[in-house]
């Protein structure tokens, strides 16, 4: 594993609406190394997408406000980069795959030209050359080049997602932000897309931030995992470590809620309760109300991130394996 490519330090993001302030991301720090695939795991609404969009600075502002923090990419703070400088990074060095392939493509432009547009933007090449490369990208994700001049509505969901992936990889980015790339797809297509992403990652040496709530995807693709809960990273470790010995009660609950084929359990084991309202976060540990281990101090003070084993970080007063 190489040097650090992306380093997020103490990032906090809020959404300011008329009625309330939504604390979407709270003091998150995260490092991504060259060639590494890191999984951001968490429930819907935990702030995963907001983190990814803030890296590319494509959050809708207003209502989103980056309150504090730094995002270093190749040594430069992206949050301080000029809009002109960001244009050269977006799609070129950092690319993003969006969650819903159904809405991520412009419905009235040809898919080929949507890919070629990104290539043309970042390379000083002719239009014809850009289109030829776009055609190659389509072939690479398994779509016949002959469908270059078709429109998104002529593609199935899985094929649209491949187009989105082809678009994201068109300029061979150093960092790929994949926001639930398989959530909107059915299971057979999911497997295909994941396999393809794995393949491309190996071939191009791209670092990937894989946002997902699917632990299967994490097991398949990720080198390390960060578990996100209510806008905080509550546990971070290598993927092997995380699956071997999850320590935060939330992570344990997350793994526990997966049904196991070989056990005789008759009911699913969900984590009780709901994620706290992001407009009104509890003062102490965010997970306190749902935590089976919560003690008096959990409601009073928020725990700090601690290293419980080499490379294994947990934000909990009472970390440890399953009781």
């Amino acid at each position: 594993m190489g040097d650090v490519l992306l380093s997020i330090k103490n990032l906090s993001i809020e959404y300011h609406t008329d009625k309330a302030v939504v604390y979407a991301v709270n003091n998150i720090s995260l490092d991504v190394r060259h060639g590494e695939t890191i999984g951001l795991v968490g429930e819907t609404g935990a702030g995963k997408t907001t983190i990814a969009k803030s890296i590319l600075r494509v959050l809708p502002t207003p209502p989103a406000v980056v309150k504090s923090g730094e995002i270093f990419f190749d040594g430069d703070d992206l949050l301080k980069t000029s809009e002109h400088g960001m244009k050269k990074i977006r799609g070129n060095k950092i690319a993003m795959i969006f969650q819903d392939p159904m809405t991520a493509l412009n419905p009235i432009e040809r898919v080929g030209s949507q890919i070629a547009e990104a290539i043309k933007q970042h390379n000083k090449i002719s239009r014809a050359e850009a289109e030829r490369r776009a055609c190659d990208m389509l072939e690479m994700v398994g779509i016949p080049g002959g469908r270059f001049s078709e429109y998104p509505h002529q593609f199935s969901g899985g094929m649209k997602q491949r187009v989105v992936i082809a678009m994201a990889l068109a300029c061979k980015p150093e960092l790929l932000l994949a926001d639930e790339p398989t959530t909107a797809l059915d299971v057979t297509i999911q497997a295909q897309v994941l396999e393809m992403m794995h393949d491309l990652k190996e071939r191009l040496g791209t670092s990937v931030v894989m946002i997902t709530h699917d632990l299967g995807v994490v097991a398949d693709l990720c080198d390390s995992v960060a578990v996100v809960y209510a806008g905080e990273i509550v546990e971070q470790a290598s993927a092997d470590d995380m699956f071997e010995s999850p320590s935060h009660p939330y992570t344990i609950g997350l793994f526990g809620s997966l049904p196991q084929l070989d056990s005789t359990e008759r009911r699913l084991k969900p984590i009780k309760g709901l994620m706290p309202d992001p407009t009104n976060l509890p003062a102490g540990c965010r997970f306190c109300e749902r935590c089976p281990r919560a003690a008096g101090e959990c409601a009073q003070a928020a725990p700090e991130m601690r290293e419980t084993a080499p490379g294994h970080f947990v934000k909990c007063f009472y970390p440890g394996g399953e009781e």
Binding site: K53, L56, V58, M86, K87, K88, I89, R90, G91, N92, A95, M96, F98, Q99, D100, T103, A104, L105, N106, P107, E117, A118, Q121, H122, V164, M167
Partner: peptide, 10 residues
């Protein structure tokens, strides 16, 4: 979303 996609392309 596709507008965000367009922005994300740079």
């Amino acid at each position: 979303d596709y507008i965000t996609t367009a922005r994300a392309k740079g």
